[in-house]
Design a protein around this nucleic acid. Structure first.
Length: 568
RNA sequence: CGGGGCGUAGCGCAGCCUGGUAGCGUACUAGUCUGGGGGACUAGUGGUCGCAGGUUCGAAUCCUGCCGUCCCGACCA
């Protein structure tokens, strides 16, 4: 591609509303343009990157035996009523009406549509298993779109759906998809990790997420250094230390804590470890008032808590005062009335001689013990987020934490959708059976942002070679002054093209600084500079995007050298 | 949806408090000089100051409402 026949529109300054480095650089490099909240146009340069990602995803899906199809983006309400998800998805689904006032949505996902296709077309066990996928635009009316294409409302997704006669068959395909996903992210050149995950609104039984590792990621991940255990913190099991509660030795007493409302401050005042304190979090679920007990240094895990209480919310200050007659900051589980249900994290349940709120302003209690000073908690469950150093649930060491960007998610849906939509087949015995189902998503457009989070420097984007918009840029210097430079640059360009190199010839006649700054900004991995200086010796200059040093190449070795770099 | 901020040229901003000629940087156009890391100079193009009301002789500026957008909390590829 010649730059004069292409469209490059870089900016020196990033828009003020861009927070993440990837968002800033994608705007500055002119890969995307914002149209509205969570809506982005992919400019020709950005689309080249997106297509490269898409093609790798497609290739690996095909290799794994999945079949590509394309379903409508707009879907009728009736299908969603069959599974009850018209209501469940709620405002996240963009609902629209046609001219006849019929209800439709712009598809946020396609379980219903694919299940409808399969129940009509698949009748026999002989046709199974089958794995169908598409790469298509989705729309989810996110509560808070942000970070450019990382959390856009409209985005490009690869979604695959498999159907089976047995759970065993589903597990096989699930493993195949797991491998295919690993292949995709490896080929893309990304540092990633597969983790156990919560299934969320999609539902089903087992699920795993694939995360690109980045400090800016929105998800916290826990993993074990000594084993392959890894899970989203939403799900990662938090084990208590030890198995039995220590004996009580202290007597319960009031301690004055005039200003200390947080466990850390109380611990500091008393000169004890924060791990000897217990915090009580007031929650309301189904109109009932709960106190959730956590160790002072632990945090409530809302996904886990939701599994215990169902839909819940934090209590308001008024509700707290009404139920325990005490302002927040000094509340605790001792001496509460019958309206209050105390639930405890597993770690708390094993604590003895602990410190907690006294249910009167400016006081805490120390030396508190279950069974003696207050009843055993009504429920003991895993309610907290794991922290660095917790024991790994597989018993093989300690957990570490890192952050990730979710770029893929695979689910074993089992019969959730097939049952709701009556998707059946006839087995070998002529019996009607419900289909087993799996589904597998990759956020194609998100991957571009995630890759930039992993690869950039002060000059701009450092794309992995798999996704760079061009593999090579040729920068002729003083092209309009030197016929020789121009001639050689064009010859090199033609030669590279002939050899299958994805090359950009910067024939705009820009000054060298501009060409260098822009090609670095957009992340082209390899650069050849053609100038009179080098040509006098029959040489051109090569520099890698990631290297600070350049070196000379003989003209006749350029294409083979670049090819070796690209294939390395 | 709750809390906070911001809407002035493609992008980044000043002007608003104290009402009276709409400005700066960058980008863009033309020319000259330049020519190995976003170069210099000169001359230009480009804005119904988010929208609608109101106050006023006069509103980017003051008041009211609406809309958009961003940040902090609950969703997801």
């Amino acid at each position: 591609m010649r730059a004069t026949q292409f469209f490059i529109s870089t900016q020196k300054e990033a828009p003020i509303d861009a927070e993440l480095i990837s968002h800033k650089l994608m705007i500055r490099a002119g890969l995307i343009k914002k149209l509205g909240n969570g809506l982005y146009s992919w400019m020709p340069l950005g689309l080249r990157v997106l297509r490269k990602v898409e093609n790798i995803v497609r290739d690996e899906m095909n290799k794994a035996g999945a079949l590509e199809l394309l379903m409508p983006a707009v879907q009728p309400k009736e299908l969603w009523d069959e599974t009850g998800r018209w209501a469940v998805f709620g405002p996240q689904m963009l609902k629209i009406k046609d001219r006849h006032e019929r209800d439709y949505c712009f598809g946020p996902t396609h379980e219903e549509v694919i299940t409808d296709i399969v129940r009509r077309e698949i009748n026999s066990y002989k046709q199974l298993p089958i794995n169908l996928y598409q790469i298509q635009t989705k729309f989810r009316d996110e509560i808070r779109p942000r970070f450019g294409v990382m959390r856009a409302r409209e985005f490009l997704m690869k979604d695959a759906y498999s159907f089976h006669t047995s759970f065993e068959s589903l597990e096989n395909t699930y493993q195949d998809m797991h491998q295919a996903y690993s292949n995709v992210f490896t080929r893309l050149g990304l540092k990633f990790r597969a983790v156990k995950a919560d299934s969320g609104a999609i539902g089903g039984d087992g699920s795993q997420e694939f995360h690109v590792l980045a400090d800016s990621g929105e998800d916290a991940l826990a993993y074990c250094e000594n084993s392959d255990y890894a899970a989203n913190v939403e799900l990662a099991e938090a084990l208590p230390e030890g198995k039995i509660r220590g004996a009580s030795s202290a007597t319960i007493q009031d301690v004055e804590t005039p200003k200390q409302t947080q466990c850390e401050d109380v611990a500091k005042l008393l000169g004890i470890s924060v791990t000897q304190t217990v915090k009580a979090i007031a929650l309301v679920a189904s109109e009932k008032f709960y106190l959730a007990l956590l160790r002072g240094d632990h945090n409530l895990n809302e996904v886990k808590t939701g599994k215990v209480l169902g839909d819940f919310r934090f209590a308001t200050e008024e509700e707290i005062r009404a139920n325990i007659n005490c302002p927040p900051g000094f509340i605790g589980p001792v001496g509460v009335n019958q309206n209050v249900t105390v639930i405890a994290d597993k770690t708390v349940a094993l604590m003895s001689d602990f410190v907690c709120g006294a249910n009167k302003p400016k006081y805490h209690l120390s030396g508190v013990n279950f069974g003696r000073d207050l009843p055993e908690p009504s429920v003991v469950a895993d309610l907290r987020n794991v922290v660095e150093g917790d024991s790994s649930p597989d018993g093989k060491g300690k957990l570490s934490l890192c952050r990730g960007i979710e770029v893929g998610h695979i689910f074993q849906l089992r019969t959730k959708y097939a049952k709701a939509m009556n998707a059946t087949y006839l087995d070998e015995n002529g019996q009607s059976q419900v289909l087993e189902m799996g589904c597998y998503g990759i956020g194609v457009s998100r991957i571009v942002g995630a890759a930039i989070e992993q690869g950039s420097d002060e000059k701009g984007i450092i794309f992995p070679k798999s996704m760079a918009p061009f593999e090579l840029v040729i920068c002729p210097i003083g092209m309009d002054k030197s016929e020789q430079v121009k001639k050689i640059a064009f010859e090199l360009y033609e030669n590279c093209k002939k050899n299958g190199i994805d090359v950009l010839l910067d024939d705009r006649g820009e000054r060298p600084g501009v060409m260098f700054a822009e090609s670095d900004l957009i992340g082209i991995p390899h650069r050849i500079v053609v100038g009179e200086r080098g040509l006098a010796e029959g040489k051109v200059e090569y520099k890698a995007r990631t290297s600070s040093e350049a070196h000379n190449l003989l003209l006749n070795e350029v294409t083979s050298f670049i090819q070796s770099k690209i294939n390395a």
